[in-house]
Amino acid sequence: HMTFVALYDYVASGETDLSFKKGERLQIVNNTEGDWWLAHSLTTGRTGYISSNYVAPSD
């Protein structure tokens, strides 16, 4: 899985979204569905959809 880092804080707007904080590391589970990616937070252990605009590759 690809690992990304959050560029900004994000508060989930629905049950399927994932809230995260700036600097949080996220593993991308599925990024084939446009701008919203299914991600797993390595910080909180939660999984949900994130906006690809809010993250950048961590490598």
Score class of each variant (00 low, 15 high):
54 Y>R: 05
45 G>H: 08
24 E>I: 05
40 H>E: 08
27 Q>P: 00
58 S>R: 06
27 Q>K: 11
19 S>W: 03
1 H>P: 13
43 T>F: 06
50 I>V: 13
41 S>E: 01
19 S>Y: 04
4 F>G: 01
12 A>V: 04
43 T>G: 05
17 D>I: 09
51 S>E: 06
15 E>G: 08
50 I>P: 00
11 V>K: 08
16 T>P: 05
28 I>W: 02
43 T>M: 07
49 Y>R: 07
42 L>I: 09
48 G>S: 01
10 Y>G: 02
2 M>K: 12
40 H>C: 14
49 Y>H: 05
14 G>S: 14
3 T>I: 15
11 V>Y: 09
45 G>C: 07
52 S>K: 15
2 M>H: 10
49 Y>S: 02
26 L>P: 00
4 F>M: 09
5 V>M: 06
27 Q>F: 14
33 E>L: 13
58 S>H: 12
43 T>S: 11
32 T>R: 10
35 D>V: 10
15 E>F: 08
39 A>Q: 00
51 S>W: 15
55 V>L: 09
20 F>M: 04
54 Y>H: 10
13 S>H: 11
25 R>P: 07
23 G>R: 01
31 N>V: 11
27 Q>N: 07
32 T>P: 09
10 Y>E: 04
33 E>S: 12
35 D>T: 13
14 G>L: 11
46 R>A: 08
2 M>P: 11
43 T>W: 07
11 V>C: 11
40 H>F: 14
54 Y>A: 15
9 D>Q: 02
37 W>I: 07
55 V>F: 10
46 R>E: 07
39 A>L: 03
59 D>G: 12
43 T>Q: 08
28 I>G: 03
30 N>L: 09
26 L>Q: 00
25 R>N: 07
45 G>A: 03
44 T>Q: 04
26 L>K: 00
49 Y>N: 03
3 T>P: 04
35 D>N: 11
26 L>H: 03
8 Y>S: 07
10 Y>H: 09
19 S>D: 06
58 S>I: 15
31 N>S: 12
47 T>A: 05
6 A>Y: 02
23 G>P: 01
12 A>E: 03
7 L>K: 05
4 F>D: 00
48 G>K: 01
41 S>H: 05
36 W>D: 04
51 S>D: 13
10 Y>L: 04
36 W>P: 13
25 R>F: 14
26 L>S: 00
19 S>Q: 05
31 N>I: 13
56 A>N: 06
58 S>C: 15
29 V>T: 06
27 Q>S: 08
56 A>V: 14
36 W>A: 07
27 Q>C: 15
47 T>P: 01
25 R>V: 15
47 T>H: 06
52 S>T: 07
9 D>N: 06
49 Y>F: 11
15 E>P: 14
18 L>K: 00
37 W>G: 00
24 E>A: 04
29 V>F: 10
38 L>G: 00
35 D>G: 11
59 D>N: 12
45 G>I: 02
36 W>T: 10
53 N>V: 13
24 E>V: 02
11 V>I: 13
18 L>T: 02
33 E>H: 12
48 G>V: 02
25 R>Q: 12
37 W>L: 07
44 T>M: 02
17 D>L: 14
52 S>I: 10
8 Y>D: 07
31 N>C: 15
51 S>N: 15
24 E>T: 02
4 F>N: 00
58 S>K: 07
25 R>I: 15
38 L>P: 01
19 S>V: 04
40 H>L: 15
27 Q>I: 15
22 K>D: 01
27 Q>H: 11
6 A>I: 02
57 P>C: 09
34 G>M: 07
30 N>A: 11
30 N>E: 11
49 Y>D: 01
45 G>K: 05
58 S>Q: 12
29 V>L: 15
52 S>F: 07
52 S>M: 13
5 V>W: 05
44 T>I: 06
2 M>E: 09
52 S>H: 07
25 R>L: 15
34 G>H: 08
43 T>C: 11
36 W>H: 09
21 K>H: 08
54 Y>W: 09
39 A>K: 00
32 T>F: 09
53 N>C: 15
42 L>R: 03
4 F>I: 04
21 K>L: 09
49 Y>E: 03
26 L>M: 08
45 G>D: 05
59 D>Q: 12
1 H>V: 13
47 T>N: 05
52 S>Y: 07
4 F>C: 07
50 I>N: 01
44 T>N: 04
14 G>C: 15
7 L>N: 03
15 E>W: 07
10 Y>A: 04
23 G>H: 04
13 S>R: 14
41 S>R: 01
36 W>N: 07
11 V>D: 11
20 F>E: 00
20 F>A: 01
41 S>V: 01
48 G>L: 02
56 A>H: 07
28 I>R: 06
23 G>I: 03
27 Q>G: 03
47 T>S: 09
16 T>F: 15
56 A>F: 09
34 G>S: 09
8 Y>V: 11
28 I>T: 03
33 E>C: 14
34 G>K: 11
5 V>L: 07
31 N>F: 15
51 S>P: 15
50 I>C: 02
23 G>F: 04
29 V>H: 15
30 N>Q: 10
36 W>V: 12
9 D>V: 04
16 T>V: 08
41 S>A: 02
50 I>G: 00
19 S>H: 03
26 L>W: 01
33 E>D: 13
41 S>Q: 04
4 F>Y: 14
47 T>Y: 10
52 S>G: 07
13 S>K: 14
20 F>H: 01
36 W>Y: 12
17 D>H: 14
38 L>N: 01
24 E>M: 01
48 G>C: 05
9 D>R: 01
42 L>E: 06
22 K>Q: 08
28 I>P: 11
51 S>V: 06
23 G>K: 01
16 T>W: 15
32 T>D: 10
41 S>M: 01
47 T>I: 11
56 A>C: 13
23 G>E: 01
56 A>E: 10
58 S>N: 09
30 N>M: 10
1 H>A: 12
39 A>F: 05
25 R>Y: 14
27 Q>R: 14
31 N>L: 12
40 H>W: 08
27 Q>A: 09
6 A>W: 02
50 I>W: 01
6 A>P: 00
2 M>G: 09
32 T>Y: 08
53 N>L: 14
49 Y>P: 00
50 I>H: 00
49 Y>L: 08
49 Y>W: 14
44 T>C: 03
42 L>D: 04
38 L>Y: 09
16 T>R: 14
